[in-house]
């Protein structure tokens, strides 16, 4: 660990764990983000590893992922059932290192909420359902989740989706993407989730017949406001990338 950590708390229940959280006490499961960051303001870790499930169940009706399941567990479970699953590719891009995939949990990945995580953009695109413990247990759409509570399960339902696409633009395959667009076709409409080097993941939707290049350009113009310029691209450039990604996934769907 690091010098500011002076206590590891093992609560008896997730409700207790939830009540213990504050700025100096944070949840600990896989720990891959925490250890990398070594935030000196954190003094205690609340170990919930034994309180969350670690399994993945997959069928065409629904994919159910326990919050404690590692990214690698998902790959190992789903790859043999459906090697075309777009989330598999997203996981490999989000976390290219198998060693870290063996450590990093789905709950931690969502809790961290990286907008440049292909996993997050995918789960936003499919509008995954989160089971969350607070004072009580409830389910909430990932798009609506405000970060409060402890995630215990992530579910999404492929049978409600007619097509899924994920496009990413990164300087290298192993590098975090500048722009990620996840899209689904469901019934008579498209839904596009946009992430990357931005502050948040944004979702746009329209009826298929209304989708056009001009709509993409308008969405890109709006979405880029959440992005940051960095050494790999200005905002003007990222707006162009968003529009191109929207166009490509839309055309593919």
């Amino acid at each position: 660990m690091w010098y500011s950590i002076n206590k590891i708390i093992k609560p008896d229940s997730l409700k207790e764990a939830y009540s213990l959280q504050n700025k100096t006490r944070v949840l600990f499961s896989g720990g891959s983000y925490l250890v990398a960051e070594k935030n000196p303001s954190i003094q205690s870790l609340i170990d919930i590893n034994d309180l969350v499930g670690h399994g993945v169940t997959a069928s065409m009706e629904g994919i159910h992922i326990d919050a404690g399941a590692t990214l690698q567990t998902f790959l190992d479970t789903v790859e043999s059932i459906n090697s075309e699953c777009r989330l598999l590719k997203g996981i490999k891009y989000s976390c290219p290192s198998k060693q870290i995939r063996n450590q990093r949990t789905f709950g931690g990945e969502i809790g961290k909420g990286r907008p440049n995580s292909e996993i997050m953009v995918f789960l936003h695109a499919v509008n995954a359902e989160l089971t969350v413990i607070m004072e009580t247990e409830k389910t909430v759409s990932i798009r609506d989740w405000n970060g409060d509570g402890i995630i215990t399960k992530i579910s999404y339902f492929p049978n409600q989706i007619d097509g899924i696409e994920l496009e990413r633009f990164s300087v290298l395959d192993s590098a975090p993407a500048l722009v990620i667009v996840g899209a689904i076709k469901s019934g008579d409409h498209f839904e596009f989730s946009i992430g990357g080097s931005s502050g948040t993941i944004q979702t746009f939707s329209c009826r298929i017949e209304e989708w056009s290049e001009n709509k993409n350009l308008a969405w890109a113009k709006e979405a880029v406001n959440a992005f940051v310029a960095n050494h790999f691209g200005s905002l003007e450039y990222k707006e162009k990338l968003i529009a191109t990604a929207l166009q490509r996934v839309g055309e593919t769907l």
Partner: peptide, 10 residues
């Protein structure tokens, strides 16, 4: 994460 070297997959 922010300094990009070519890795095996690249």
């Amino acid at each position: 994460e922010n300094y990009h070297i070519f890795t095996s997959i690249d």
